[in-house]
């Protein structure tokens, strides 16, 4: 980025880093901090709420897809001649939009829970003022 040949530069660090055992990181124990103080009980309630939503999605997924391998096998005449077509359609096409829908539902629920939590937090912090 300099146009004319610039004078030479030298590399400077505070300590000349030569070979040696000096390269261990100095792990100063820093207590985790910086979080705004929240009552552990409210945090616990938030965690439980989110876990419920998460498990609902996973449970729904298991309930919808879990029995399918058994079903496809135990009912060979499922839909007569069309059996494979049904299987192809379900496993090849239908499940994918279903996943996206489940995912969107989850995100909506999880964000709602968080918004409520934040609102409760601001209400608790200042009775009437606006949040920054």
């Amino acid at each position: 980025m300099t146009e004319e040949p610039a004078p030479a530069r030298a590399v400077v660090t505070r300590r000349p880093t030569g070979p040696g055992p000096a390269a261990r990181p100095a792990r100063v124990p820093i207590p985790p901090g910086g979080e705004p103080e929240r009552d552990p009980e409210t945090v616990r309630a938030l965690v439980h709420g989110q876990l419920r939503t998460g498990l609902a999605v996973v449970g729904l997924l298991a309930a919808l897809l879990g029995p399918l391998p058994l079903a496809f096998r135990s009912v060979p005449q499922l839909g007569g001649d069309g059996r494979p077509v049904v299987v192809w359609a379900v496993l090849g096409v239908v499940v994918y939009p279903l996943f996206v829908l489940l995912g969107r539902w989850y995100v909506r629920r999880a964000e709602l829970t968080e918004r409520r939590f934040n609102d409760a937090g601001t209400r608790a912090r200042d009775g009437s003022g606006t949040a920054g």
């Binding site: 939503t53 998460g54 999605v57 996973v58 997924l61 499940v95 996943f99 489940l102 995912g103 989850y106």
Partner: peptide, 10 residues
């Protein structure tokens, strides 16, 4: 694909 749904939820 479903792996991402589980990842998302949990």
């Amino acid at each position: 694909t479903a792996g991402y749904l589980v990842l998302l939820a949990l």
